[in-house]
Design a protein around this nucleic acid. Structure first.
Length: 664
RNA sequence: GCGCCCGUAGCUCAGUUGGAUAGAGCGAAUGACUUCGAAUCAUUAGGUCGGGGGUUCGAGCCCCUCCGGGCGCACCA
């Protein structure tokens, strides 16, 4: 809606530029600083001032006269030193909103696929708040893309053969002397959840290595067995990884996060994805066998492939330190095994459909809503399994600390000649979640003298230091529940629990999304448990209030039927009020907000927009007694605005993965 | 040492490809509930946008430099 008008204005301005000055350039619009300047502004006169050697104001004047009338625009005004401010035709705009609504664009059936990979938690312990940020960011970005009409596939990569799983297996096998059956019993037992059990065990094993370096041989033995793929230890590893993946998916589902496919490292190994990629890399000479230095005997990628030498004169640098081969990245170790980066290059090739190989798939689980998750397998066991991978664009939601490795992966693609795919490989990076010192104290975490001096403390799985996702969610539900119980003693207990859960999820998701990606979050219980101010519950509350008005209205005046009760003339009179018009305008910008947020790659922008919507409505709620309005036409108009707001806020919150509770 | 990121109100953060008078939330102070329930709203106080230089009609944003902080630079992932 809003975008349609934007497009028309841009087109008219560009046409005028061409006609008046024979200039062909892209015109951009911006939001005026103050609402009384109009709804949009065209700042193009400024950038032309020098080129045309004219005052911006004069240029703006000429452009406006050349533009003529634009559908949906009431007037163009020259303001300031040369802004062209746009005033929309309010009556026409609101009539269109009323008439057509804002249909969400549908994904084209054969549209190119966008792949978003997120979560990717090592399947050896419970998920913690750092993982939550990853999954919530990834899931929200998926929702944004889908809302914009894109076809999206969600992947959650499972490293079920790595060191972290091996260490927990070391714990079960060597420390606790547990058999496969023992662990199976542990998984189904009603005691401490299995992922929590592993959390502690992993921390114990890590600590033990610190004291007993010789124990690392156990890890090597386990890793070796996993690679062999048979025997008690390998079976243990599979058991642990699968059980933990189940736990992770369950945790994430509590937050409304679903996946389409779980590609596993075990299949990347068994199906020899790496061997294929290795051949490609050797053939294209993207990597070479190092014959001297510390990397002797390894296949390496030269640093020049993935490092841009910044600033200084390159020749001078080379003269001083001739080709530092130590900077090369090892892809294949001297013992012939491939590193994580190597596997990741193969995996990234698969995501684009460039490897010439695919996994087999089988169903992993079906969510209560009917959506099915598939997992990779190494042989065909299901007929008509869907096809995954082969995306046009790939977003990898990964912690910013791994940017160096992501650069190497992209360089690998580039070295193979896949430049376009390299350009469409996006490291969707974000800063870590750490713990505030206050929260550490609350949790009884012993801090070292060094840590005490820091403004925050890094989460560490190996130290078992962190806030588990399920614990946090439970605590949020408990806090919300107390409020709900207090306010709605009469309501059904089961329903109150549901409401509390929706509020808790709203609080958590909003908290993780309100910060931009590269802002480090120092997690603090006090802040996260707050339901006031710029929070998810604040937005939910405004939607609930709107719902209450609608409910009350129907109780008193009968069913809503705007078509019957509202006329264009009535709308026009209503939106002569500046504040009501501003509210309607803001509410109409959902798609505009989503598009801009995608462009910026910032889910936080949608969160901000949702908050602004809620804030605007709360002010309206305070200023207008909708039900008590005696003028019938006006009353119906206010109710329509309320309904429109609720509908659009629901859409916006939906993009954030936040639901609206029945009451609050 | 090299590379990347950050420094905006007491605190936590926004700030659209450089545009009009730098904005929120929390915290502080004051005020507003006989029900569309205050998980709210209104008002006030609070800024040399880390320092300096440059580019520009115009800089929180771009360039240089200095100061302060974080992360990365494994034959771990």
């Amino acid at each position: 809606m809003f975008q349609d008008i934007e497009k028309r204005i841009v087109a008219a301005a560009e046409a005028a530029l061409l006609q008046k000055f024979s200039l062909s350039l892209r015109v951009s619009l911006e939001q005026p600083k103050q609402t009384n300047f109009g709804e949009l502004a065209i700042p193009v006169a400024f950038q032309l001032a020098r080129e045309l050697k004219k005052a911006p104001k004069a240029i703006a004047q000429e452009l406006v006269s050349a533009m003529g009338p634009v559908d949906g625009v009431a007037a163009f005004e020259i303001a300031g030193n040369g802004f062209i401010n746009v005033r929309l035709d309010r009556a026409a705009y609101t009539a269109m909103l009323f008439d057509k609504g804002l249909p969400a664009p549908q994904p084209a059936p054969n549209a190119p696929k966008t792949i978003v990979e997120h979560t990717n938690i090592n399947p050896n312990k419970a998920a913690h708040i750092g993982h939550l940020r990853n999954a919530i960011l990834g899931d929200t970005f998926v929702r944004m893309l889908r809302r914009a009409g894109e076809r999206v596939e969600v992947q959650n990569y499972i490293d079920n053969t790595g060191v972290q799983v091996a260490d927990v297996v070391v714990g079960f096998h060597f420390f606790e002397k547990k058999t496969v059956d023992d662990v199976k019993a542990l998984i189904v037992s009603t005691g401490r959840p299995f992922d929590y059990y592993c959390w502690d065990l992993y921390a114990q094993v890590s600590a033990y290595y610190g004291q007993n370096a010789e124990a690392l041989e156990w890890r090597a033995e386990v890793l070796h067995s996993i690679e062999e793929g048979s025997g008690e230890i390998a079976e243990l590893a599979h058991l642990v990884a699968d059980a933990i993946v189940k736990a992770h998916l369950k945790t994430m589902y509590r937050l409304g996060i679903e996946y389409d496919v779980l590609p596993r490292e075990s299949e990347i190994l068994h199906l020899q994805f790496w061997a294929t990629a290795f051949e490609l890399l050797k053939r294209r000479e993207a990597i070479f066998l190092e014959t001297e230095g510390k990397n002797k005997g390894c296949w390496v990628m030269p640093s020049s492939a993935f490092r841009v030498i910044g600033g200084k004169d390159k020749a001078a640098d080379i003269e001083e330190e001739p080709e530092d081969k130590d900077d090369s990245k090892v892809i294949v170790r001297s013992n012939g095994t491939v590193t994580y980066v190597g596997k990741d290059i193969a995996y990234q090739l698969w995501k684009f459909g460039l490897l010439g190989k695919d996994f087999y798939y089988k169903p992993w689980t079906r969510y209560p809503d009917g959506h099915e998750v598939w997992v990779s397998t190494d042989r065909s066991v299901v007929e008509n399994a869907p096809h995954f991978g082969g995306g046009r664009e790939v977003f990898n939601v990964i912690d910013s600390r791994q940017s160096y490795l992501q650069d190497v992966v992209v360089a690998g693609l580039r070295a193979l000649g896949f430049n376009e795919e390299a350009d469409r490989s996006v490291h969707f990076s974000y800063e870590m979640v750490a713990l505030s010192p206050r929260t550490c104290v609350e949790m009884g975490i012993q801090l070292s003298e060094e840590d005490k001096k820091k403004p925050y403390v890094e989460v560490s799985g190996r130290k078992g230091l962190g806030v588990k996702a399920d614990d946090l969610l439970d605590k949020l539900i408990e806090t919300a529940q107390a409020e709900v119980d207090d306010r709605h003693r009469e309501a059904d207990a089961g329903e109150r629990r549901q409401v509390a859960e929706i509020i808790a999820v709203g609080a958590l998701r909003y908290f993780m999304l309100k910060f931009t990606r590269n802002s480090l979050i120092a997690f603090d219980f006090h802040e996260a448990l707050s339901f006031e101010g710029e929070t998810g519950p604040y937005a939910q509350y405004s939607a609930v209030r709107a719902g209450n008005i609608l409910k009350k209205y129907e109780e008193r005046f009968g069913p809503l039927d705007f078509r019957e009760q509202l006329t264009p003339a009535g709308l026009q009179r209503l939106f002569e009020s500046e504040d009501l018009w501003q509210l309607a305008l803001l509410v109409s910008k959902v798609d505009h907000a989503v598009r801009r947020a995608i462009q910026a790659g910032e889910p936080a922008h949608i969160a901000k927009y949702a908050f602004q919507l809620a804030q605007a409505f709360n002010t309206f709620y305070h200023d207008y007694r909708v039900i008590d309005e005696t003028d019938v036409e006006r009353r119906v108009g206010l109710v329509w605005l309320t309904s429109f707001f609720r509908e659009q806020l629901r859409e916006t919150l939906g993009v954030l993965g936040i639901e609206i509770p029945r009451y609050m």
